[in-house]
Amino acid sequence: MNVVYFAWVRERIGLPQETVDTDAATVKDLIAELSAREDRYAAAFADVSALRVALDQELADFDAPLAGVQEVAFFPPMTGG
């Protein structure tokens, strides 16, 4: 699955995008899996209340299932306008 990062999440992890091989059932599970990898992931995901997630370019909840999802995006609350 394609995982993309934006703004300070991208900077903290040090990557804009990566392909992740995972069996994670939900977004929460994926976060736990990534956080266990390396400190930079743990730092980026330390406070999920400061994060938003989109599944296939639609905003989603952290307990949303990942079955059939092609792209997961993590980013801070949006500041458009």
């Binding site: 934006f6 703004a7 989109a54 801070p76 609350p77 949006m78 500041t79 458009g80 306008g81």
Partner: peptide, 23 residues
């Protein structure tokens, strides 16, 4: 809605450095 639901992120650059604008 564009402010909080369109996926844009602003970063301000000054002589002191750069910082993300918090929502």
């Amino acid at each position: 809605y564009l402010k909080s639901r369109a996926p844009f992120w602003k970063k301000e650059v000054t002589a002191q450095g750069a910082s993300w604008v918090d929502a």
